[in-house]
Amino acid sequence: MGELAQYLVTGVGLGCAYALTGSGLVVIYRVTRVVNFAQGSFAVLGALTVTTLLAAGLPHGVAEGLGVLLAGLVGVLVGVVATGKPGTTPQAGLIVTLGLGVFAYAVEIFFWGDQPRSFPGLPGAVGGIQTHYLLIIGVTAVVLGATALLFARTDLGRALTATAADPYAARAVGIDVVRMGLFAFAVGGALGGLAGVLITPVQQVSFDSDVALVVSGFSAAILGNLTRPGLTLVGGLLLGVVQALVGGYLSTAYQSEVALIFMLVVLIARAGRRDLVEAA
């Protein structure tokens, strides 16, 4: 297979991780209005946990599943701290999640040290493309599809959307708004954890990988203003592909800047449009 095709597949694979991280941000933001700065920590914690579980002899699949589960549980904890105290504003919640992200550093270094770690993914290659990338793409497609179904087709998903749309009315029909928020944090945590677990075999992870991940996830999600899951997927894939192409044809040195510049351009363009609307 040609060089271009390889870059494309690699890019889509990376993009899937960004889309998963970004979707976690979106789920949490929609329901709680908190921009979860600790979103990257879910990925790091999930991935580091998997390294330990694999070393302890657990089979692949089980170890990864437990890593994702742990990330979901950590998500609930983050949610409890960031939204559990009555009267905590979303702004305060953002700062609290920032603090929790730093706290995760302490935990991660304590258990795993400060050196990068990795674990083997799906071995082999198909037509010059690492099979693991295909696994990333497949799993992401299934999981994001299932998440979309959860929101569109189940009463729990409807209740989550209802909480996001109108917390007062949600309370009036008996929806426990706080519990919905925590559930959103659990889903967000699991999605973040999955991103970390999937990406680590092709990209090492260390305790401070969270900043790059949360920035990429935010960049993906900002395309849909942090509320649109579909656009978040598009944003993530776009970002991953552009990064892979820049890395392949220009220089790998510029790869990580792609997400940052993309984010700034989208943010500034959006603010400019908002100003125009306000002026009109």
């Binding site: 409807r158 209740a159 959307t161 109108d166 007062y168 009315a169 029909v173 008996g174 929806i175």
Partner: peptide, 25 residues
């Protein structure tokens, strides 16, 4: 049951979904 002032429907959901959530409990 309450019909709140200003309706407070769940705007992004369909009418049927709004009704379903009325029986959330």
């Amino acid at each position: 049951a309450l019909v709140p002032e200003g309706r407070h429907l769940f705007g992004p959901l369909t009418v049927d979904d709004n009704l379903r959530l009325g029986a959330w409990r």
